[in-house]
Design a protein around this nucleic acid. Structure first.
Length: 1061
RNA sequence: GGGCCCGUAGCAUAGCCCGGUGGUGCGCCCGGCUGAUAACCGGGAGGUCAUGUGUUCGAAUCACAUCGGGCCCA
């Protein structure tokens, strides 16, 4: 054991602990220690390699680390490889920016090969940066060998999974409408679309009914550019539609509009007059034909026969008729398939109109909006703008469009039932994350478009024959090598694109150019991280994962993608339990974002407060599944708590070291035998803290098993602050100061040692650095070398004494109350009081106060502390009239009764009323019967007695002074001032002094001199000490002399360091 | 527009499942302690429990609606 720095130096401690872990390879040793334990397979949700972590990422890893450390301490063989998500558009976009590219053409010119290399380097560099940041947080995962989605072995896992999908008939090529990013020129998944408000045109358009001049169907749309792809109008089969003859500017038109919406539409179109001349239901409308108002401008439209169809999704809004462009909308597409409508899409991959769109050709779709409006001419019934939620590419923020293209799909919609079944089998924290949130999301599951027309990703391992059209899915690299006859140097584009496979038809198969949706990468993580399919042993023994935890945004992300892929490949969920955690928000509850300027980085918190502080803060601040509002005050407060832990730990060290204390041990390894063997005979405060720390361990164990990290960490903080620092350490301080051999002292050392060791074990998952530093200093030679190699403590019932804990609660309540009463009586704690009396409501309180009486006396600085049940004879009661009750009862005589009450014997009245009787006041004619409710009673305390309520009673403190008490009070004042002067002189605790005191007041001087000279001498370690009255005698030359005013008495205190004794 | 979560003193939170006098920490004011001391401890002030309606003898707690925030979806 060594003495330690006087305040908590987080950075220093954490640096040295991390250095130690690194040098000693502690993490590896801990893993080795539990190699034979039960397996606990954890899969790290791979962060995307952006190159920096934010508070949310830090919180995520801290939650993981805390729980995994707990499982390791419980003896589990924890398998926890870190992972990184390294492919995909975000990186492509960053690399494009670095290279100054703006489109795919730039990339093709630059060369796919070199471009891929840039992406690879970018991802790898970021991965290393992030690993360092995570390690800095004290996170113990396998960072030396993380799973990486760009590794060939990982890519194989994705290939293998796709092959499984093909075997199961779940893979399909389809011409469908997909979300499309025109900038990235690729399909994107539903999960990649971000929604926010966008201002768009809101237009009402008249579609001319075929063969009838001046008759129109009126539709509404926010995407004018989709009109060139219109093929139909949808009506609701059950709505009524009106044939309206409307007049505008003297011209008459016939319009078809849903009946209920006629007026609002006509108002928008500024029609002056109208009359309804006919009605048809949607069903009757069905089959009407019309032509496009853009038929002259868009040649494609001339070739299409347009008709009215019915659809249930039509709502009674706008015009009650929906323009249908199956090439540009999901509902439209489905309807088009059902009604056998032509699916046209005159828009290219970059969102420009093709030649089919005639005069719009080569215009970007959004830029075409005003042109379309212009060209609609009189067909434009009304034009306005609307702000509505619109989807955007989650990486480049470009508004998406819907585009019908040929893509590869996993038929997830067919798996819905199976997935729902699996979700029910998983244990969710909190329960509703699975039963409500995830369940609802899966119910909406659509087929999963897994193909992307990009570069940096896992190539889709499908080869198709150019002559016969057959396709083949490749499951492994070896299979590809065998099929192509060429060694695969890199399974990425463009290398794999060059490999051809001979087809059975004699033709040659080429790879489809697409790569996987990046969400498919991480979807296979749970088996890819186990080296599958290259090796199957780990998969067989470990899979599925015992536990995963990620943020709530991963409901639609990783929780779902994994479930989908796993259900296809293995027919079951890939995880047994899932903790869904919240988001890190700023103090106002807003998302942290660069544009709001409210971003707090983990680095800045670590730098100013330390890693353990950050960890304990995020773990205790909110329930894992609630959002975390980051608050600097809260962080600083946590630093304070850590400082108290540090103080509690360092406080006994000097004494232990001075005494050469070493805890009793068995075979060189510390164990709890000493405490265990003596538990029942320990002094009450020792037994109490032992019980408390076991209760703590029990609670923390229970909380951790339910992922209640906030409860567990709050319990630990509460224990440190309330039980250890504010109570136990206060109670045992004096025992630490005993000199020489003293059994009470040794027992205090042993108890405190036991308590700290137990506390360190249960706190180590939360605050791994400080606990390691403390443990390293406290351990004895045979002990395991790291706190993280200890065995978890679940709280031993044998070492708990609940009655004692409850009695101590009472005493603590007494302590607060007596301090309160003293404060009311303006008697400082240094001054002893004659008596404290507790008037208790229950025998338990009496029992607690008497059995722990020495603690009560000590805390209250009272000669006597006693508890009585019922009443204390020195308390009197004064009756006070309740006029509200007296008025009705006594009418005009009420004032008379009031005076009688005020002068009555309150004590007698109270005992009568308390006994349920009435009380007679006055005599003869003026005799009144007082009943309960007509009076209240106020305490009448004797002079010098002050009271305060406590749990289950009231505390009375008699602060009146006696000469004896007064002498001690002054003596304590003198001692304290000498101690302060010693400190000013920088004297060591063990140094001796010579001292003198001059007290002007002869009475006080005499009292102190007679009964306290020797006591003071001992306390201040003086070899000589004289008390003088009046002026200080000349000739005493002391190093320090100071005038003091002690409660109005002037004193001069002086002292010198004594020569060596 | 839909699903889920959240809204409690200046700030951060407990309590809500299972209704019965709203606790705690920070900050603020006052005090104590002085061998953990540029530390530590006590006391006090401070609340329309987001709003409204309902159920109930009684609602922070249950129900419904509204408003605000977050995540997800259409």
């Amino acid at each position: 054991m060594k003495e330690v720095s006087s305040s908590y130096q987080a950075l220093e401690i954490e640096d040295s602990v991390q250095q130690y872990w690194k040098e000693e390879n502690t993490y590896e040793k801990v893993k080795e220690l539990h190699r034979d334990g039960d397996d606990f397979f954890f899969v790290d949700g791979p962060p995307y390699t952006t190159g920096h972590i934010h508070l949310g990422t830090a919180w995520n890893k801290i939650i993981k680390d805390c729980l995994l450390r707990y499982h390791r301490l419980c003896g589990k063989n924890v398998i926890a490889r870190a992972g990184y998500d390294m492919h995909g558009l975000p990186i492509e976009v960053r690399v494009e920016q670095m290279l100054g590219f703006s489109s795919k053409k730039d990339i093709e010119r630059f060369g796919i090969g070199p471009f891929i290399e840039r992406c690879r380097t970018f991802a790898a560099t970021n991965k290393d940066i992030m690993s360092e940041q995570f390690k800095r947080l004290g996170v113990w995962l396998d960072f030396d060998d993380p799973y990486q989605t760009m590794h060939p072995g990982y890519i194989e896992a994705a290939w293998w999974t796709l092959k499984r999908a093909d075997e199961e008939g779940m893979l399909e090529r389809g011409f469908r409408v997909v979300n499309w990013c025109p900038r990235c020129a690729t399909a994107i998944a539903d999960a990649e679309v971000e929604y926010w408000d966008e201002r768009d045109p809101s237009i009402f358009v008249k579609f001319p009914v075929e063969g009838v001049d001046g008759e129109y169907l009126v539709i509404w749309t926010t995407t004018p550019w989709t009109l060139p792809a219109n093929v139909a109008v949808a009506v609701h089969p059950d709505f009524l539609y009106a044939r309206v003859e409307a007049v505008r500017d003297g011209k008459k038109e016939v319009l078809w509009i849903a009946e209920d919406l006629v007026e609002s539409v006509l108002r928008k179109g500024r029609y002056q007059d109208f009359s309804i001349t006919g009605k048809r239901s949607g069903k009757e409308m069905c089959g009407m034909t019309f032509h496009s108002p853009l038929r002259e401008q868009v040649p494609l439209q001339k070739e299409i026969s347009h008709r009215v169809v019915t659809a249930d999704f039509v709502t009674m809004e706008n015009t009650g008729m929906v323009h249908i462009a199956p090439g540009h909308g999901w509902d439209d597409y489905l309807l088009g398939c059902r009604e056998n409508l032509p699916i046209i899409c005159p828009v290219d991959i970059q969102g420009h109109f093709t030649g089919e769109a005639g005069m719009l050709s080569s215009l970007f779709v959004k830029d075409a909006d005003p042109v379309v409006l212009q060209e609609l001419g009189h067909h434009l019934l009304a034009s306005d703008q609307v702000v509505h939620r619109y989807g955007h590419c989650w990486r480049c923020k470009t508004p998406i469009i819907y585009r019908a293209t040929s893509q590869w799909f996993l038929k997830a919609s067919l798996l819905k039932e199976r997935m729902l079944e699996e979700v029910k089998k998983v244990t969710w924290y909190p329960e509703w994350a699975g039963s409500a949130r995830f369940y609802d999301w899966i119910k909406e599951a659509r087929d999963w478009c897994i193909s992307r027309q990009r570069y940096w990703g896992i190539p889709i391992p499908i080869w198709t024959c150019s002559s016969c059209g057959k396709h083949r899915v490749i499951g492994t690299i070896r299979e590809l090598e065998e099929a192509s006859g060429v060694p695969v140097q890199d399974p990425h584009r463009p290398w794999v694109d060059q490999l051809t496979i001979p087809c059975s038809c004699g033709g040659s198969m080429l790879r489809v150019e697409d790569i996987f949706d990046v969400w498919f990468d991480s979807a296979v993580a749970s088996w890819a991280t186990l080296g599958f399919p290259a090796r199957a042993d780990a998969l067989e023994s470990l899979w599925p994962a015992d536990f995963i935890t990620e943020g709530q945004d991963q409901t639609r992300g990783w929780f779902y993608s994994q479930l989908g892929a796993s259900t296809i490949a293995f027919g079951r969920a890939p995880y047994r339990s899932v903790l869904m955690h919240g988001f890190a928000l700023d103090a106002e509850g807003r998302k942290m974002s660069k544009s709001l300027g409210n971003v707090v980085t983990p680095e800045e918190v670590i730098k100013s407060q330390g890693v353990d502080v950050l960890r304990l803060y995020v773990l205790s601040q909110s329930a894992p599944w609630d959002d975390l509002r980051f608050n600097w005050d809260g962080v600083k407060n946590m630093h304070r708590a850590m400082n108290i832990l540090w103080n509690v730990y360092r406080f006994p060290l000097p004494y232990m070291i001075l005494d050469g204390f070493s805890p009793r041990s068995g075979d060189g390894t510390w164990n709890d035998e000493f405490i265990r063997g003596r538990f029942s005979s320990l002094s009450p405060e020792d037994r109490w803290i032992v019980s408390r720390v076991n209760t703590l361990a029990l609670q923390v164990t229970g909380d951790l098993s339910e992922c209640q990290l906030h409860r567990a960490s709050r319990a630990i903080i509460g224990f440190i602050l309330e039980d250890l620092s504010r109570w136990y350490v206060q109670l045992v301080r004096e025992r630490m100061w005993l000199e020489g051999e003293a059994p009470e002292k040794t027992q205090a050392y042993e108890t405190l040692y036991y308590t700290l060791r137990t506390l360190l074990t249960v706190a180590s998952p939360f605050i791994p650095h400080i606990t390691e530093a403390m443990y390293r200093n406290l351990q004895i030679p045979g002990d395991p070398e790291s706190v993280h190699m200890l065995q978890w403590c679940t709280g031993d019932p044998v070492l708990r004494d609940e009655n004692l804990e409850s009695a101590m609660d009472t005493v603590r309540s007494f302590d607060e109350a007596q301090a309160n009463a003293r404060q009311a009586g303006k008697r400082k704690l240094r001054w002893p009081v004659r008596e404290c009396v507790v008037v208790a409501e229950t025998p338990n309180v009496v029992e607690a106060i008497s059995s722990l009486n020495h603690i009560c006396r000590d805390r209250a600085n009272a000669r006597v502390v006693r508890a009585v049940c019922g009443t204390w004879e020195r308390i009197g009661w004064r009756a006070e009239p309740v006029m509200k009750a007296l008025g009705p009862a006594f009418g005009k005589k009420a004032p008379l009764v009031k005076d009688l009450i005020l002068n009555a014997d309150g004590n007698a009245m109270k005992s009568a009323l308390d006994a349920g009787e009435t009380f007679i006041l006055g005599q003869g004619e003026g005799c009144f019967e007082i009943s309960p409710g007509q009076v209240t009673f106020a305490q009448q305390l004797p002079e010098g007695v002050f009271s305060a309520p406590m749990q289950g009673g009231i505390v009375y403190v008699d602060v009146a002074l006696t000469p004896d008490l007064e002498a001690e009070g002054y003596a304590r004042e003198i001692i304290r001032r000498f101690q302060e002067m010693r400190r000013q002189m920088d004297l060591k605790v063990e140094d001796f002094i010579t001292a003198d005191a001059c007290i002007k007041d002869p009475r006080v001087c005499k009292a102190v001199e007679e009964s306290w000279r020797e006591g003071i001498m001992e306390e201040i370690r003086a070899v000589s000490f004289e008390v003088h009255g009046g002026e200080c005698p000349a000739g005493t030359h002391h190093a320090v002399e100071k005038e003091w005013d002690v409660e109005g008495i002037a004193m001069t205190l002086s002292l010198s360091r004594a020569s060596q004794q």
